Simulated assay, not measured.
Amino acid sequence: MYGNVAHNIYAQNNVGIESPAKLIEMLYEGVLRFNAQAKKAIKDGDIEKRVYWINRSVAVITELIAVLDMKGGRVAQYLEGLYNYEIQLLNEANLKKDESRLDEVSNVFKGLLEAWRETTNVAK
């Protein structure tokens, strides 16, 4: 359900995506952007926006799970577990209005984004 939503959002906004690698980078960036918006909503006490932005992050992470190549071995399995854990943290952040859980997810995705950029730049 969420996966198609995330893909459609990015596809609509970025019709000329260069490559699947670029799409993954944009999805990671989306999680960071949506988490920042959710954190602001928590600070502002805006329940509707908090739920909206956290759900957007969950949708993106769900899409990341959907595109994993499970034939890729342990890395794909690790990422699947990591992504599911991040979704759990986002749900807890939503229920408990907990900015620290949002920060934890954002820190993980900052690291993933940096590693992804390094990996895809080397591959080019």
Rank of each mutant, 00 (worst) to 15 (best):
R33K: 12
R33L: 13
R33Q: 14
F34L: 10
Q37E: 01
A38L: 04
K39D: 13
K40F: 08
I42M: 12
K43T: 09
D44K: 13
G45A: 11
G45T: 08
G45R: 10
D46L: 06
E48L: 15
E48Y: 13
R50M: 02
R50S: 01
V51H: 05
V51W: 00
V51R: 04
Y52V: 05
W53Y: 07
W53S: 04
I54S: 01
N55R: 04
S57D: 05
S57C: 13
S57E: 05
S57F: 11
V58W: 01
V58A: 05
V58P: 03
V58H: 03
A59F: 04
A59V: 05
A59I: 08
A59P: 07
V60K: 00
V60S: 02
I61K: 15
T62A: 07
T62V: 14
E63T: 10
L64K: 03
I65V: 14
A66K: 08
V67K: 12
V67Q: 13
L68M: 00
L68E: 00
D69C: 08
K71P: 06
G72D: 02
G72N: 04
G73T: 14
G73C: 09
G73R: 10
G73F: 06
V75E: 11
V75N: 05
V75I: 11
V75A: 12
A76R: 00
A76I: 01
A76P: 00
Y78E: 14
L79R: 13
G81N: 06
L82R: 03
N84D: 06
I87K: 05
Q88N: 15
Q88W: 11
Q88A: 12
L89K: 12
L90K: 03
L90M: 10
L90C: 04
N91C: 13
A93L: 03
A93K: 03
N94H: 08
N94D: 13
K96M: 01
K96F: 06
K97E: 14
K97V: 08
D98R: 04
E99Y: 06
S100V: 08
R101N: 15
L102F: 01
L102G: 05
D103N: 15
D103W: 10
E104G: 14
E104A: 15
